[in-house]
């Protein structure tokens, strides 16, 4: 950007926003390195004695490790299934004219708008009757259905950006519809598929409401819910620092993913970026 206007207001503004957003995260990180007794210390932002104890505690707790396995498993399965569904649906929506297309799109939007909390009660009852309560599928199913709308909307925008001719060219070159989809459309929409996958994964990974309501034990409880059940190393200690350590542990994958795929996500969110 060539601009004659000074750059420093932007720099100052960015710095302010950066501090504003990073402060709570840093605070949690600092807390996770403090000793439990130090939580009340209002003057010290940095720990007096740096310690890995909280992390050791966290990883020694079955509650957390089981929850971590649950979280990873459930989120990955939900993401994979959701993105595969969403890709197929979005492709159909972008490419085909069929009755009820508008209906599907508005339905998807309505689901995305629906307050999650209001569904938890009925789901709780339903899942108990069906035997899905406190199981992986019991969480995967609602995750998929709530992540789908966003994924469908993102992906169909992507597919629409891909020129029709690409696919027609592939068909003339001798491809079946499925081959054209797999060899031309999917690779071209890869940034979109990626974006959708990451957004879906975050949604599942960060969910708290379903996690706490539809589970009751280590069998399926994901990390965000498990954090609430944390007790300290002994019952005379506040578990705050341990919770912070656990929070840091579950935040790390998110940060790593974002940093690793930063470019793709940005490209994905801004445009289809497909040139003919």
């Amino acid at each position: 950007m060539e601009s004659t206007r000074p750059k420093w207001p932007w720099i100052v503004a960015s710095a302010l926003i950066l501090v504003w957003t990073i402060f709570p995260i840093l605070w949690i990180v600092m807390l996770s390195f403090k000793r439990p007794g130090e939580v009340g210390n209002q003057k010290g932002f940095l720990p007096k004695h740096w310690t890995w104890d909280n992390y050791r505690t966290v990883f020694r707790t079955d509650l957390f490790t089981a929850a971590l396995v649950n979280s990873i498993g459930i989120s990955m399965i939900a993401t994979f299934a959701g993105v595969v569904f969403a890709t197929l649906v979005a492709y159909a929506i972008a490419r085909l004219e069929f009755p009820g297309k508008k209906l599907i799109l508005s339905f998807a939007l309505a689901i995305a708008m629906f307050p999650v909390v209001s569904l938890v009660g009925p789901l709780f009852d339903l899942w108990r009757d069906l035997g899905l309560y406190d199981t992986w599928p019991g969480l995967i199913i609602p995750y998929i259905s709530f992540a789908l709308p966003l994924a469908i909307w993102t992906l169909s925008a992507f597919f629409r950006e891909i020129p029709w001719e690409m696919e027609q060219a592939a068909q003339v070159d001798g491809a079946t519809s499925w081959q054209a989809f797999r060899k031309v459309i999917v690779p071209l929409a890869a940034p979109g598929v990626f974006t959708a996958a990451i957004l879906t994964f975050f949604f599942c990974w960060n969910d708290f409401v379903f996690g706490i309501s539809l589970t009751s034990s280590d069998r399926a409880r994901p990390v965000p819910a498990a954090l609430a059940f944390f007790t300290g190393a002994s019952q005379f200690e506040q578990p705050t620092t341990a919770i912070c350590a656990a929070a840091v542990v579950v935040t790390v994958p998110v940060v790593v993913i974002v940093l690793a795929f930063q470019r793709r996500i940005v490209a994905g969110l801004t445009s289809g970026a497909v040139k003919g």
């Binding site: 001719e165 690779p187 071209l188 890869a190």
Partner: peptide
Amino acid sequence: FQNYALYPH
């Protein structure tokens, strides 16, 4: 095709 429709990937 008019816009060539090459496969960009």
